[in-house]
Simulated scan of single mutants.
Amino acid sequence: MTTVLLVDDQALLRMGLRMVIDAEPDLDVVGEASDGAVAVDQVAALAPDVVLMDIRMPGMDGIEATRLLAQDHPSTRVLVLTTFDVDEYAFAALRAGASGFLVKSARPEELVDAIRTVATGSSVVAPRVVRRMLDLFAAHLPSGAAAPPSGAVSPALRALTPRELDVLRCVAEGLSNAEIAERLVLSMTTVKTHVGNMLAKLGLRDRVQAVILAYECGLTGR
Rank of each mutant, 00 (worst) to 15 (best):
V130L: 15
M198V: 06
L136F: 08
A126T: 12
P127F: 09
T190P: 09
L5E: 01
A156L: 11
T76L: 09
R128P: 05
K192M: 14
D135Q: 14
D61C: 02
T161H: 11
L160Y: 07
I212G: 03
A145K: 11
R222E: 15
A96Q: 01
F84K: 11
L69N: 01
S154P: 01
V7D: 05
S154N: 02
V40W: 08
D28V: 07
L6T: 03
R56N: 13
E179F: 01
A114Q: 05
L204E: 08
G16W: 05
A92H: 07
D9W: 02
A23T: 06
A139F: 08
M198Y: 01
D22F: 04
N197W: 01
E32N: 01
V4F: 09
S176W: 03
L134F: 05
D85S: 04
L165G: 11
S75P: 05
V171H: 03
D206N: 15
D61Q: 05
K201V: 04
G218F: 05
L204I: 12
H140F: 11
H194P: 05
L157T: 04
M188H: 13
M53E: 05
M53S: 02
V125Q: 08
A11M: 09
L136K: 13
V7E: 04
D206C: 10
G59P: 07
A92T: 07
A44D: 15
N177S: 08
V167A: 09
A23D: 13
I212Q: 10
